[in-house]
Design a protein around this nucleic acid. Structure first.
Length: 558
RNA sequence: UGACCCAUAGUGUAACGGUAGCACUCCGGUUUUUGGUACCGUCAGUCAAGGUUCGAAUCCUUGUGGGUCAACCA
């Protein structure tokens, strides 16, 4: 039964579930659900909820439903349903069932009638403003609606007229009859049904009244016999109403538990704010790799395993939090280090001419695809008289501890030969444009008899054989850790360097065969994924995440 | 001038009332044809004050700090 092992501690939800199981509650079942509203794309916050709900289902030999909370036809669209379905699948989870709250509309309507019959609900003719005013404030009790004491018969008749479309939008609502003086604002006669002449993405024009969250969510849980209904902290005040409904309706006693949603540093996880970034064109779309949406992270090259591992490491609790983006990046590197093929790419090319290498000659050198995985095999690299190396890998006047190439110095070209820099060529402005070097023929990788000990190994590509590529370098979307939590407008906080495009990078010829979604480690630079925009004539790579760069840190201190 | 939720290293998260642990970060080191990876090590924490107890991160009280609640949204 309990899959918990002693090495891993339980979170508070696992503790609750294990107690329930031990006490034989819910017939020993565990049935959770992930209930997105199809009005936007899933983001990293949803990912934690998905991992939590499906993870609990898996851990306790239970099941997890995917249920679309589609009770508001004016904001919900099929496009979102489809993206959510594919995101959940991509993350690696299989719902036991895919349900829609809209499928329960007839049953929910029946529940509403039941409440009326029990004297627990009434039709209110007040306007939205009047209802808001009568609600009172957190520190001031509300007042009863003048329509609160209608007879059951009259309420039934009015509610049916609402359903039949006899009233205009906004003229009538169905409310629960609870307590206008409750310290919990949610319990002050909450709205249950409203009139909306809107086309629903699934039920079309069948209905013109739609249930509110509190009349739909918990009841849907009960219909499905959900055992543990897990939601975020903002729903804590709703739990009292959730339980009230179960009590009055005498339906399956699902239980609601709340956890604190995960906040990620340097980004926002609010549908409203993300929507704004998309609509105002600050990013190129929901799947712009700078976005914290699942589709964007996928495009950028984050793996599902990395995201799941991240969710596991972060854990779950009830306190406010701001998770360091660095942990997500750590998980991404960890997974990509394991699986990605190493290739060489030069982002800022500097020409190197090997003065003692034969003109027009190409020597093919062997290199391993992944040192972490011998099974990944080897491939060949063309080595020629002129090469590109990274501008950062040469310094005319190197600071102490700079190991790379400098005038008169040595460096190993990865999987090739040791070279020595003999001459620095500059243009009129003093810019270094070329290095004239000699290579040591007896220093070939794997059969080096030169006895030379260069202090570093650098990456390179053949200038004659390299392929040009566009590289998109991504950085954090915002300049501050917790954007959107003070008065400053979000737009002021957008990182102007969140995207840097390099159009003339030189990559090794093996990359000409790449396909969208392929992932690589560009040696010494980072992990990169081939973008969907990439074509054989115009290669495009997204930088998923950089490699850890100890030198950059050391150099930055000086 | 209300009700509810929360408070453990920089960050995140553990600890039947019984040695405050783990991960990331930071810092230092070993290995390395990636200044990557791997491995080793250091620094660092119970919001405060009372109370209960042989013993309190844990239970109680008060305070402090943070969050949530007044959409015909979910």
């Amino acid at each position: 039964m309990s899959a918990s092992n002693e090495n891993e501690s339980n979170n508070f939800l696992e503790t609750i579930i294990e107690e329930d199981l031990a006490a034989g509650r819910h017939d020993g079942r565990v049935l959770t659900r992930f209930p997105p509203e199809p009005n936007g794309y899933l983001h990293i916050g949803h990912a934690t909820s998905i991992c939590l709900n499906f993870g609990l289902g898996l851990k306790y030999d239970g099941k997890t439903n995917l249920r679309f909370d589609d009770t508001n036809p004016s904001t919900e669209e099929t496009e979102y349903v489809e993206s959510i379905l594919s995101d959940v699948e991509w993350l690696g989870f299989k719902p036991a069932n895919v349900f829609y709250a809209s499928d329960y509309f007839p049953e929910l309507y029946g529940f509403a009638r039941d409440l009326i019959k029990k004297g627990c609900a009434y039709v209110d003719d007040s306007s939205a403003e009047e209802i808001a005013t009568m609600k009172g404030t957190p520190t001031q009790v509300g007042v009863n609606s003048p329509f609160r004491d209608r007879s059951i018969e009259e309420n039934l008749e009015l509610f049916e007229k609402m359903k039949n479309g006899d009233f205009k939008e906004g003229t009538h609502v169905l409310r629960a009859k609870i307590d206008m003086a409750s310290p919990n604002m949610i319990m002050r006669d909450p709205l249950l049904y409203r009139i909306k002449f809107a086309h629903h993405h699934r039920t079309g024009d069948t209905w013109c009244i739609y249930p509110m969250y509190d009349m739909a969510h918990g009841q849907s849980d009960s219909i499905e016999k959900i055992t543990h209904s897990i939601c975020t902290l903002e729903f804590v005040p709703h739990r009292e109403l959730y339980d009230w409904m179960i009590d009055k309706l005498e339906i399956y006693p699902s239980k609601q538990y709340e956890f604190a949603r995960r906040n990620l540093s340097y980004t926002v996880v609010s549908k409203r704010k993300l929507l704004r970034l998309v609509q105002e064109g600050h990013v190129k779309g929901w799947d712009d790799p700078r976005m914290p949406t699942i589709s964007a992270m996928r495009r950028r090259g984050y793996t599902a395993l990395a995201i799941r591992e991240w969710a596991k490491r972060v854990g779950i609790a009830k306190r406010e939090n701001l998770v360091d983006l660095g942990l997500l990046e750590f998980c991404v590197r960890e997974d990509l280090n394991r699986l990605s093929v190493r290739v060489m790419a030069v982002l800022q090319p500097l020409k190197v001419t090997l003065t003692n290498f034969q003109e027009d000659k190409t020597e093919w050198l062997e290199t391993e695809n992944n040192p972490e995985d011998p099974e990944a095999g080897v491939r060949s690299l063309p080595f020629t008289k002129t090469l590109w190396i990274e501008q950062d890998d040469f310094m005319e006047t190197p600071p102490p501890k700079y190991f790379r190439l400098s005038p008169g110095g040595l460096a190993r070209l990865k999987s090739a030969y040791i070279i020595q820099c003999d001459e620095v060529v500059k243009d009129d402005s003093g810019q270094v444009v070329e290095l004239k070097c000699t290579y040591f023929e007896n220093s070939k990788s794997g059969e080096d008899t030169s006895g030379l000990k260069p202090k570093s190994t650098i990456h390179w590509v053949s200038a004659e054989r390299a392929v040009q590529a566009e590289i998109r370098l991504y950085d954090r979307l915002f300049t501050v850790e917790n954007p959107g939590t003070d008065d400053r407008d979000l737009l002021e906080l957008i990182n102007p360097e969140s995207l840097t495009v390099i159009s003339n990078a030189q990559v090794e010829p093996a990359l000409a065969e790449t396909n969208p979604g392929d992932q690589y480690q560009f040696m010494r630079l980072g992990y990169f994924a081939t973008d969907p925009d990439s074509t054989p004539d115009h290669l495009v790579f997204n930088r998923t995440v950089t490699l850890k760069d100890t030198w950059k840190k050391v150099a930055g201190r000086n």
